[in-house]
Each structure stands twice: as C-alpha cells, then as structure tokens.
C-alpha cells in the first residue's frame, strides 16, 4: 500500500543521505571509498547542528576526531601569546578540519566556532578503531588516505622549511 506521506518522508531521508554521501565524497579521507563502504562509515558518524557563534571544540580540548561541514561555515580561531584571538581560517561547505585527531588525542591546536547556523558531520577516533576491528580492509583504506594527507602536509612543511632556511642564509650572507 502506497502512503504519500510515508513516501515523501522516505524521499526526504534518502535525499538527506545522498547529500551526506556527496559531502563525504569531497573529503580526501573518504574519496577512495565505494558507496557500500560509505554507507558503513555513515553508520558511525554523528550529524550535529550548531548555532551561530557556538564552539564546536576549543583550543586545548583533547582531540577526538574530525568534522566535515555539510551546511554553513566555521572559523578556526587560535589564541596568540598575548591572549588575543586570531582567525586562522574560515571554512565552508564540504571543508573538513581536525582530521589529525583521528590519529592521536593531542590537544586541539585551535578552536572551531560556527560562523552561522551550520550542520556538521563528526567522525571520531574510537569509531575508526572499532571499524578497523570489524572491517580491517575498510579501516586500512581510511588510514591510508589519512597517511597520504599527513605525508602531503609534511612534504609541504619541508618545502616551506627549506625555503625559509634559504631565505635565512641569503639574509646572513647579505
């Protein structure tokens, strides 16, 4: 028996799920996953709604996992030595942050605050560990993507460091 109300509800739910999949696919951590694997990951992620100016996490909190912006914008705010706030970046739909917290629980290096009302997906380390225990192949895929992100950042940092070193040498030599 077809119930139009139920069908509309089902359609909305499906569309919402498709939206989440679309956003997840844009994130490098999940880009190599098949739809079936994304469905598996979707079961262990948390969707949260934040109001304007509401903190998602604060600098110094233990790192627990990464966030992906589905709707809205988030600013990453650092605290300078003199205690003043400094906006380090403003991230929008599809962007992700806190990904390194999937690897360890080092304190957050900056705060994340909602710029406007936003919808965010959270993917956390305990859930990744549990997924690795149940589905090692899927867990490995995610870990491999994470290590690619980390190595890419390390390469860029090394390049920047080399550049800064060269500049210092040039300054020294007059």
């Amino acid at each position: 028996m077809n119930n139009p109300l139920w069908e509309s509800f089902e359609l909305q739910r499906k569309n919402k799920k498709e939206d989440i999949f679309q956003v997840m696919k844009q994130v490098p951590v999940f880009e190599s996953l098949s739809k079936k694997e994304l469905t598996e990951v979707e079961k262990i992620i948390y969707q949260r709604e934040y109001k304007k100016d509401e903190p998602i996490f604060r600098e110094g909190d233990p790192g627990l996992g990464m966030y992906i912006i589905v709707e809205g914008a988030v600013e990453i705010v650092g605290e300078k030595n003199d205690g003043k706030k400094q906006i380090l970046a403003v991230l929008e739909k599809g962007a992700f942050f806190g990904d390194l917290s999937l690897l360890d629980d080092a304190p957050r290096s900056a705060s994340a605050i909602a710029v406007n009302n936003c919808s965010i997906l959270g993917f956390f380390r305990p859930n990744l560990l549990e997924l690795m225990n149940r589905k090692p192949n899927l867990g490995l895929k995610i870990l491999f993507s994470l290590s690619k992100i980390v190595s890419e950042r390390l390469r860029r940092t090394n390049e920047q460091l080399a550049k800064v070193k060269d500049e210092l040498e040039e300054l020294k030599n007059g």
């Binding site: 079961k43 262990i44 948390y46 949260r48 934040y50 509401e54 903190p55 998602i56 996490f57 909190d61 233990p62 627990l64 959270g122 956390f124 305990p126």
Partner: peptide, 24 residues
C-alpha cells in the same frame, strides 16, 4: 550503535565531545 547514537543526539553540543569520549 543505534542506541548510542540516539543517546548522544540528546546531549547538548557543549558536552558532546566530552560525553562521547567518556562513553567510549
């Protein structure tokens, strides 16, 4: 997982990470 998600969904944003961490 469903029960856990349902419980976590009722936790205010302020305590979300704290509760999730403690729970795990």
């Amino acid at each position: 997982r469903v029960f856990k998600k349902l419980f976590i969904s009722k936790i205010p944003n302020k305590y979300f990470e704290l509760v999730l961490n403690i729970l795990d």
